[in-house]
């Protein structure tokens, strides 16, 4: 019963979020602020994680393909496809759900418990739209860029680490990442990143917007938001993969 109540309330909240903004100029200003806070501030962690994961995957593929019957190009191919199909879209979204999602829940939740949201409502501002819409647009906008950046730095990580630990040469690796390339994989993952971006912004916003109580409840709501967002990301990953890839 609680599940249906929350789903219903989530969609009602979205209806308010996508209502016509009171003053477009303020929303656009807020949008740039959110792109900076939620997107640009996430670039560092995306680069670091992608470089390390790219390097680790290259070593692991090289280890798995150590049998001489496998061509060495498989290492680059494996790294590339894993990055594009799963890591840079899904895994990154899971990581971002922790970073961005908890940020959104705690920010909106704190505004709720300190009556700042009531204050907006009293003024006649659609608080759901003013607080949540710029966040959703910012995250949906920035996610494809983070995805592309993650693929690039992941491949770069593999190219640096592979030769460094002596499991593959740079020419072999470069030949591998170009071998049997399917451009549709990029389209598929970009679609996934848009969907995941929407989930990473809207689900934590829901948990923050309806929090009741004090600081303790805001903390609990953040945890619930991250867990639920992660589950939804994996669920939609399954659905999108089934619909778009098989």
């Amino acid at each position: 019963m609680n599940f249906f109540f929350n789903v219903g309330r989530y969609f009602l909240m979205l209806k308010r979020v996508f209502a016509r903004p009171e003053r477009h100029k303020l929303y656009i200003r807020q949008l740039f602020h959110e792109i900076d806070t939620l997107g640009v501030n996430s670039v560092g962690i995306v680069v670091i994680i992608s470089i390390f994961i790219g390097g680790i995957m290259t070593i692991q593929f090289a280890y798995a393909m150590s049998n001489p019957i496998y061509p060495s190009t498989l290492v680059g191919l494996g790294t590339r496809d894993t990055l594009i199909l799963e890591f840079s879209s899904t895994m990154l979204a899971l990581i971002m759900a922790g970073k961005i999602g908890s940020n959104i829940t705690s920010e909106i939740g704190t505004m709720r418990v300190t009556e700042q949201i009531d204050s907006l409502e009293i003024m006649g501002v659609n608080s759901a739209s003013y607080l949540i819409l710029p966040k959703i647009v910012a995250v949906v906008f920035i996610f494809p860029f983070l995805f592309i950046m993650s693929v690039f730095f992941g491949l770069l990580g593999g190219m640096v680490t592979g030769p460094l630990v002596g499991v593959i040469t740079i020419p072999e690796y470069i030949e591998g990442i170009q071998w049997l390339f399917v451009p549709y994989y990029i389209t598929f993952s970009l679609i996934k990143s848009l969907v995941f971006g929407f989930l990473v912004a809207s689900v934590p916003a829901y948990f923050g917007y309806y929090v009741q109580g004090g600081a303790l409840e805001v903390g609990k709501a953040s945890t619930r938001a991250v867990v639920n967002t992660n589950i939804l990301i994996l669920f939609f990953d399954l659905i999108l993969t089934r619909l778009l890839l098989t």
Binding site: L26, D118, S119, I122
Partner: peptide, 27 residues
């Protein structure tokens, strides 16, 4: 309607003057 909340409920991400200017910007 103007409302003064128990805890003030000022928007903590904007300055004092930004708080006063907010309803003016909006409406």
């Amino acid at each position: 309607i103007g409302m003064v909340f128990q805890g003030g409920a000022l928007f903590d991400s904007i300055s004092v003057e930004g708080n006063i200017r907010f309803p003016l910007d909006m409406f």
